[in-house]
Amino acid sequence: MKGLYWQQTLSAEETNFVFLEKDNLAVLKDNHVKVQVKACALRWIDTKLLSEIKMEKEFLPVGREIAGVVLEIGEKVSFFQPHDEVVGILPLDSEESGLCEVIVIHEHYLVHKPEKVSWPKAVGTIRDGVRAYTALHYLSHVSPEKTVLIMDGASPFGTIAIQLAQHRGAKVISTVYSLEDKEYLERLMPSLARIIDESHGKYDLTESCLEETGGLGVDIILDAGVRLYSKENETTSQQLLPHKHDIIMLLSVGGHWVTTEENLQLDPPDIRCLFLKGATVSFLNEEVWNLSNLKQGKYLCILEDIMEKLSSGVFRPNLDEPIPLYEAKVAMEMVQKNQARKKQVVQL
């Protein structure tokens, strides 16, 4: 079986994606299922995380979000039958690439795909759905009447997060970094409380949010990266990110800040401000569900609910047109360099 892998090189900046032919398919164990892959979503590979958990390899498999049809089941499989349509996320320690015609996977990483949901939409939504649920449900407990600020709302993740927050009855404010993104959100979600276009520096984030909340601040902030300090040689994308002080000042009393910044550093004045507000900071790492089996049942419930909301139209993902397998290498290079604005999905 041929699959796509990232060949590790001495330079971390190099991206060398190659198709490798595997000699044999993994043995079908008691609780595993054999799946014919129909679609696979591409996502940035966090090599630093893999290194920290001692999972460095010469060849890293590409594509963990997969959807397909069950071909064969192990003797103790209880959730699925042959011909079932399924979707799921391969574990971090998977040896197999999702960009493979047939793979073997444990049944506890899969859920049923609704019939009326297309293969690309299923794989293009499932991971961002997990991230959104982790951030807004488990870390910040979004509820009706709360105000939520979602940074970069036109990104694939931001789009799903906005839709989940609105579905839970929250008032949503979002930032965008281009006129095209603003127009996209206005078409997709006209009920947003406010869209703040930061591309030209015309709007002050703090002033706009405090005006929208009557000076009370925002209950939940979900960032897309922050500036820890100002430096002279900042790139344009770094300059558009909010400063950590601005985010803390925007928080309401008892507010929650959910950050994607893994190297966040807070100074004593920042911590003092958080203490006075009784506010909290949480780190968004959706991989925690796969790093521990303690809450496997909750994880599967999340996956099932994501598919249900996708089927009912609550979730409308920001997807690019599906691409064929022979274009996967080029598309993955764009994804790894953060040059792909929409979710990239390969249809097999």
Results as ranks from 00 to 15, higher is better:
E75D: 14
I73V: 15
L42R: 05
G74V: 01
P61A: 04
G68V: 12
E65W: 07
D46C: 02
K76C: 09
G63C: 01
V77D: 01
F59R: 00
A67V: 06
E72V: 09
W44L: 13
S51G: 10
V77N: 04
K76R: 13
A67T: 10
K54P: 00
A67D: 02
F79C: 00
A41M: 01
V62W: 04
W44T: 08
D46M: 07
G74T: 07
E52L: 08
V70H: 10
S78D: 08
K76P: 00
I53L: 09
D46P: 01
L60G: 00
I73K: 15
K76Q: 13
M55S: 06
K57R: 15
A67N: 02
K76Y: 08
W44R: 12
G74D: 01
V62E: 02
M55K: 08
I66G: 00
K76T: 14
G74Q: 06
E58D: 13
L71W: 09
L49D: 06
F80N: 06
G68L: 07
S51V: 01
G74A: 05
A67W: 02
R64E: 11
F80L: 06
R43H: 13
I53R: 01
L50R: 09
L50D: 01
R64H: 15
I66F: 07
S51K: 12
A67Y: 05
K54V: 11
R64D: 11
F59A: 08
R64V: 09
I73G: 07
E72Y: 07
F59Q: 05
A41E: 04
I53E: 05
K76D: 12
S78A: 08
S51N: 14
I45H: 03
V77Q: 06
V69E: 13
K76G: 00
M55G: 11
F59E: 04
S51W: 07
S51D: 14
T47Y: 00
W44K: 07
E56Y: 01
G63I: 02
V77W: 10
T47L: 11
R43M: 12
G63P: 08
V69G: 08
I73D: 03
W44A: 02
V69A: 03
A41S: 14
V62R: 02
E75R: 15
M55A: 10
K48R: 10
L42N: 03
R43V: 06
E56G: 07
E56R: 08
S78Q: 12
M55T: 00
R64M: 13
F59S: 02
A41K: 01
V62G: 02
K48Q: 09
A67P: 03
L71G: 03
E56I: 11
I73N: 10
A41R: 01
L60K: 07
I73E: 03
K57T: 11
V62N: 07
E65H: 11
L71D: 10
G63N: 05
A67H: 01
M55H: 12
E65Q: 13
K48T: 05
V62T: 05
M55I: 08
L60E: 11
K54G: 08
K48F: 10
A67G: 12
G63W: 02
P61C: 03
K76I: 03
I73F: 07
T47G: 07
L50T: 03
I66W: 00
E56K: 10
A41I: 08
G68T: 05
E72T: 12
V69T: 15
S78V: 13
G68W: 06
I53D: 02
E72R: 09
S78K: 15
M55Y: 10
E75I: 15
E58C: 00
I66P: 06
E75P: 04
F59D: 02
E52Q: 12
E52N: 12
